[in-house]
């Protein structure tokens, strides 16, 4: 590798990291600013938003790792175990904070009342769907975490198992994304 090539590779590395950090910061703003919204429920909204977005970011990164599991290439299982554990914790936080903000959603003059009056489909079809499927990622990632800790590094001798773990991560991501988007749609429709 010539010095010039090395510099270019290094530049790309710096840029990639900068992009990732910027993306994370800007995305966290999407929910972080909820803390400053003019509502009595800004704390609940902000916490749910920040944990949901963190769960999405971690989940999306994990889909990248999932392909290594599916393709059967070399995987650093130690780091993967920490990531799935972190992701499980975030999914749990997202579900718990979701419960918290759901109370206000159903409260007097809360979003549900407004939506049922003005655009009932968004409650009857979307919210009644979203409130359940957003519970899916936590148990799914809990299963993945358990499996990776239970089998340890030995799991790599069983390609069918690693492949299944990869697929479960992808499925969990799908529900995260659905929950994220529907949550934002409802928040746009009527904030808590």
């Amino acid at each position: 590798m010539s010095t010039e090539q090395y510099l270019h590779g290094n530049l790309a590395k710096i840029l990639v990291r900068t992009q990732a950090i910027l993306a994370l910061l800007i995305l966290l703003l999407l929910a972080g600013l909820d803390f400053f919204f003019p509502t009595n429920y800004s704390l609940q909204a902000g916490l749910h938003g920040v944990s949901a977005i963190s769960a999405i970011v971690a989940g999306t990164y994990l889909t990248h790792r999932a392909y290594a599991l599916i393709r059967g290439v070399h995987v650093n299982f130690k780091s993967l175990r920490y990531w799935v554990l972190g992701s499980t914790a975030l999914n749990f936080l997202g579900a718990v904070s979701g419960n918290w903000i759901y109370m206000r959603y159903r409260g007097e003059n809360g979003p549900r009342d407004w939506i049922l009056k003005n655009a009932p489909d968004f409650h009857n079809y979307m919210m009644e769907f979203k409130e359940f499927v957003t519970l899916f990622p936590f148990p799914l990632m809990a299963a993945v975490t358990f499996i990776l800790f239970y089998y340890g590094d030995d799991i790599h001798v069983r390609r069918d198992l690693t492949q299944f773990v990869g697929i479960t991560i992808l499925v969990s991501w799908l529900f995260l994304l659905i929950g994220f988007v529907t949550g934002l749609v409802l928040a746009k429709l009527h904030f808590v």
Partner: peptide, 22 residues
């Protein structure tokens, strides 16, 4: 050598939970 039973158990259980929810 690793066997697949625990993995099936760990993934069947959440599915049953989801059906309970539904």
């Amino acid at each position: 050598p690793p066997v697949s039973g625990p993995l099936v158990a760990a993934t069947l259980a959440p599915v049953l939970g989801f059906y309970t929810l539904m």
